[in-house]
Design a protein around this nucleic acid. Structure first.
Lengths: 133, 133, 133, 133
DNA sequence: GTGGTCTAGACCACG
DNA sequence: GTGGTCTAGACCACG
């Protein structure tokens, strides 16, 4: 059973929290290809958010190509396919790394310190994903 | 000569693109302490945005303590001084790392790959710093 | 209920008057951690200024780390955290003391008189703080 | 001979630096009632600023009632007279003290610390005035 | 010609 | 209904 945890008061919009948790559930095998997602209204009721918010998250997942909608039957985990080229994915990450590097340097951090911080947050994320299993 | 490239239609606001590019220019040594920034109106004309947008970006840089304004004369790269506590500086870097890590994971990158990309951009910044000396 | 009084035609910009009054309200305990600030548009309507002017004031308060914004929900008084180094905090206070001392001297006040006035306002703030507890 | 020292790159506008130094010269007895001030153009040439800037400073001194212009003859130190009531002068100083007190409190300074800082800047100002004699 | 502030009004994101 | 961003344009201060 898919369980979604919402943190209001976070900087991350609710719809994005839903997207990320569904993706994490698929990535870690909790949801497999062809599995149904909870209906928009059921999930909205369960996590107590506006159903438009859930619909928006599902729309995003469809745009990302990892969920499919079958008219009248609901949403299902889609066959895995790559939608972005490697170059495009690399570009998107680098766009976020560049300001991080400038900011960290101006704040007086060394490259090693930043690498350590990145590694730490990666581990933290993995740990919290495990917690969802 | 500082050249700013603006991407309209990006999800990164224009004023933030300006802030990031000025910061990058200072971090990598393209701009040094005491150097003037382009005037608000001149830069606004050059990149074809409203002058208020440039002023907003410059105000942000002032708050971060890396630029100074002298009434009637313009903006200049400020003497470096530590204005934030260690905890605040760490917090600020982590605020930028968190979405990076999350986005990279969604795009299918491993922690190692991201670390390598961060390291690479750090080296690039240092290298261009040398080139400008 | 936070009430802001604006003096137009003063040499103090409107946005700064807002900043100062919100700061005073927080400093003296009229507003506590977690309390919501009036919404940008509501305050703008109440004091009859443009919403951008209120937004600018609130942005300033965020940069100073004493207020937080939660997308779609509004602005709230932030948990107190030290974001500035001792040197920076001292510098900021001195930046405010310098014109005060200069102006007071021009108006014919002695150092003792100014000290007495500063002390009085400090007591007043503490007193109203107690009143609000 | 009246000597004015201008610091460009300060936050204090040049015209205000002139005003303050003329006032200081009068306050400390270097200039007495009836003494002539340097002509606008002579002073402008000496301190290398635009003559409009000097004219503006002199206009301010006239508004403040401490200098008089005698058409065609120049500017002279006026008979001392009070232009602001005590209440008004007090009000003006308090307007500057109030934000100082809030800001200092939010930055974590005690009343004693602020008083010490105010006293220090007062002494510094007096010392620099003596230096002008 | 520099920066600083403000308004009126628009359009977007989130929910 | 919240906040966030941007434009067009105005008017002021300083020099």
């Amino acid at each position: 059973m898919l369980s979604i945890q919402i943190t209001t008061g976070s900087d991350v919009p609710i719809f994005r929290q839903i997207v990320e948790q569904v993706r994490a559930a698929i990535a870690c095998g909790k949801l497999s290809v062809g599995d149904p997602l909870p209906s928009v209204r059921a999930l909205a009721a369960e996590i107590v958010v506006n159903h438009n918010t859930v619909a928006k998250a599902y729309a995003q997942l469809i745009r990302d190509g990892i969920v499919e909608s079958h008219q009248g039957r609901g949403y299902f985990v889609a066959e895995r396919r790559e939608i972005f080229t490697k170059a495009e994915r690399t570009r998107r990450v680098n766009v976020m790394i560049q300001p991080l590097v400038s900011e960290a340097a101006l704040l007086g951090f060394s490259g090693e310190e930043v690498l350590a911080m990145v590694e730490k947050q990666f581990s933290k994320m993995v740990a919290s994903n495990q917690g969802n299993r």
